[in-house]
Design a protein around this nucleic acid. Structure first.
Lengths: 133, 133
DNA sequence: TATTATAAGTGTATAATACACTTAGATGGC
DNA sequence: GCCATCTAAGTGTATTATACACTTATAATA
């Protein structure tokens, strides 16, 4: 997306697309959804991510599938093929013990980030004269 | 930095370095500092960024200099050379009108992100049994 | 039989970061 | 005068994350 032009969300208000590539937090979101749902497959997570996204950009299927692959290589999730269900075979993922720990680490890191961002936003707002009232 | 190993912050608690490449928010931080300080040069901003960083990783000189260059190409800042001061010549930056608007957009976007992150962290914490008490 | 929904990807370009390295002016110690 | 150090502004290049398009294949439905 070219900076300053967002065709998806219009010109009503600035959105992450128009600000360049913002981190989408695919990894912690995937770990969180796996923890919450127990077992799931990628395609189902794609739907869940449409409602969970932390920015106003949606997370792409490609990004999710690659992230799941990497999480498995790192030992944070394990997968098995489900060929019993109707439709194409599903690769069913599950959090490992290590993955649970990793999610908890993400929660700590993102907690700090949320606080820092809130503080920054508050300080930055003070630099501009209030337009309301 | 290899994931899971942070030589800078030790093993006391998870840090952004060990979680992979997290967005460092160099652009909004630079815009904010320029708004706050009026006129500054890159080297001074590097020092300021050491105290303002939103993650526990410091922002690198290389990233800042490239960001300032890009901001100028986009018309968000303007620069002039200061050869009067002692030492090597300084490229002195200043926010433009467009840059002020862009900073305000960043504040809106990061405000939303801070809220989303705080909500996510809160929901994720609920998935783990409390260890305290 | 053709279309659509489901499911899991790959290809490839751009963008952000990580770490190392370079260039060059000024200052202070010897 | 010479060398180390501080100041200032970069560049080189590899890795990681994202963006968007595209492919493959199974099953259900019209």
């Amino acid at each position: 997306m070219r900076r300053g032009h967002c065709h998806r969300h219009g010109a009503d208000q600035p959105c992450t697309c128009a600000m360049g590539n913002l981190y989408r937090f695919v990894e912690p979101l995937a770990l969180y959804l796996l923890k919450k749902r127990g077992q799931t497959h990628g395609y189902e997570l794609i739907g869940a991510l449409r409602e969970q996204a932390l920015t106003d950009s949606t997370i792409e299927p490609g990004a999710l599938y690659r992230t799941l692959r990497r999480l498995e290589e790192s030992g944070f999730v394990s997968s098995t093929w489900d060929i019993a269900a109707s439709g194409p075979a599903r690769r069913v993922y599950e959090l490992t013990e290590l993955g649970e720990q990793h999610l908890q680490e993400w929660v700590i890191v993102l907690g700090h980030l949320a606080e820092s961002l809130a503080g920054f936003v508050s300080e930055a707002r003070d630099l501009f004269p209030s337009t309301s009232s």
